[in-house]
Design a protein around this nucleic acid. Structure first.
Length: 464
RNA sequence: UGCUCGGUAGCUCAGCGGUAGAGCAGGUGGCUGUUAACCACUUUGUCGCAGGUUCGAAUCCUGCCCGAGCAGCCA
């Protein structure tokens, strides 16, 4: 007979016992008694393990020595109310079969491990409690992103990962090439590398943003979003930067900066609320072991309105704060990490959207305001993490955009199609980038971006 | 890339000039409807690598490698 396997999540959520049940998973721990053993099994479907009672009178008990932490097993038996405290259900085993054994060298012993150590065993850490929670929440968060936009009839667009755009000013790029590094073709005139011989007949890179292409789709579908990987070759060693990360980039036609800020705040609240409603068990582990204030902060973010403040006013707040900053808060300067943290953690004590930044510190595509000094940019800052959203209203006026390209030293010809969007049926439009991993850090309380990515890519690290 | 901190048993860490320790994990025995089980006993080390100082270096110095934090860049 072929019995259907039941997931641990489903078994533990049962209202009634089951005469026969089959579960499969990995052994977390075993406790032996004289006449029976307790075995706890986890299959990743939820944080909790299911307790198996294996009586010494069973034929299979002869093999109980193989049922060690880390082993893959299959258990059949009866789902019954537990006689002990601590769990509602347990399985009285009639048979237990070991698929793959494990031994004392198994790196994930049933003791707390440091995050740094677990990072070094990225092939096994998903089997730990903490990372099980992280990646279940990651899954749910990705689902919620799509749900949010689909409910609003945004069109999901797949923008290219390989791009010829190298001058967005957004950090270093990874080059994509199929040229033989040991035998590079050279231009006769100047000896420089001849990229016309390369695969795409031009220099190409991994994308740092799908925004420009998303703008194309927004001027056809009105409301669109991208959700995919992006790449930055910056040599950053911080807890919030990775070389490969996922970004969510909505782009909306017929939408100004205010509508853009509305959407940014709405999605942050929505995602927080969705995780609060659907990942309670996982969140409870984070709030116990990672960040005691997590649940309060998430509730707060879901319920309370965010603050909104123009850049100029933000600078005044920083100047009047009397606080000594390493980098002085002066008009024309970028908001430093310490400034962002002061605004969201000390002054407003909630998420803050700063908008209307000096044009000198922002990219060419942002829309010039009538004051001639600022552009319609916005950053959404959250406590502990800082910038989680960065966006702007895009310059939709052909002449102004062409002038901006010139001012930034960029070649109009390279942006011919971007300019043509302003030549044919141009319209005000806006969008932003939401860092998926930063959102996940915010929602889980995990402090290091390397611990919310299954296999993190950072400078010098791409093993798994 | 700059500054700071760190690398000692499988893991977490103590030792900081006199020749290597604890807790946990593992092993053995006992006990128990147990639940990060408990009790007793017990195994384990190129002290990151390479030089140097010293009678003697895990300990001090130099270089290198690796990791972490902060800053810049940004999401």
């Amino acid at each position: 007979m072929n019995m259907k396997r039941t997931l641990v999540k489903e078994a533990l959520g049962r209202e009634s016992p089951m005469e026969s049940i089959l579960v499969k998973g990995w052994v977390r721990t075993r406790r032996d008694s004289k006449t029976f053993s307790f075995v706890e099994i986890n299959d990743g479907s939820c944080l909790k393990n299911i307790q198996i009672v294996v009586d010494a009178s069973l034929p299979a008990y002869a093999e109980i020595g193989k049922v060690t932490t880390g082993a893959a097993v299959s258990v059949s038996g009866e789902l019954a109310a537990s006689q002990g405290k601590g769990q509602k259900w347990e399985i009285q085993a009639s048979n237990i079969e070991v698929y793959g054994t494990s031994d004392e060298t198994y790196p994930l012993q049933k003791k707390g491990h440091s995050l740094e150590y677990l990072r070094e065993i990225a092939h096994l850490r998903p089997r730990s409690n903490l990372f099980g929670c992280v990646f279940r929440v990651r899954n749910r968060l990705a689902f919620a992103v799509h749900q949010f936009f689909q409910q609003k009839d945004f069109i999901y667009v797949h923008t290219p990962l390989i791009t010829a755009n190298d001058c967005e000013g957004a950090g270093e790029l990874f080059r994509v090439s199929s040229l033989d590094l040991k035998n590079l073709p050279r231009q006769e005139e100047n000896g420089e590398i001849d990229f016309s011989k390369d695969f795409f007949a031009r220099p190409t890179y991994l994308t740092v943003s799908g925004q420009l292409e998303a703008e194309i789709f927004a001027t056809a579908f009105s409301n669109v979003y991208t959700f995919g990987p992006t790449f930055r070759a910056e040599n950053s060693h911080t807890s919030r930067h990775a070389s490969e990360f996922w970004m969510i980039e909505p782009e909306m036609a017929f939408c100004d900066l205010e509508g853009n800020m509305d959407l940014a705040e709405e999605i942050v609240k929505y995602l927080v609320g969705d995780i609060l409603d659907n990942c309670q068990d996982d969140l409870s582990l984070f709030s116990r072991f990672v960040d005691k204030g997590l649940l309060d902060r998430l509730q707060f973010v879901r319920e309370r309105p965010f603050k909104r403040v123009p850049y100029t006013e933000a600078m005044e707040i920083l100047q009047k704060s009397g606080k000594k900053f390493e980098y002085p808060a002066e008009y024309g300067a970028n908001l430093q990490s310490e400034h962002e943290r002061f605004l969201s953690e000390d002054h407003f004590r909630c998420p803050v959207t700063v908008y209307d930044f000096p044009k000198e510190i922002k990219p060419f595509y942002m829309r010039s305001n009538d004051d001639g000094k600022t552009v319609g940019a916005m950053d959404l800052l959250v406590p502990k993490i800082g910038e989680i959203v960065g966006g702007s209203q895009r310059e939709e006026r052909y002449d102004v955009l062409a002038e901006n390209l010139k001012r930034h030293g960029l070649d109009e010809k390279e942006y011919w199609w971007y300019l043509e969007l302003r030549q044919y049926g141009t319209v005000e439009h806006s969008g932003f980038g939401l860092g998926f991993e930063r959102m996940l850090m915010f929602v889980t309380g995990i402090a290091n971006i390397r611990d919310v990515i299954p296999f993190a890519r950072t400078p010098g690290n791409a093993e798994f």
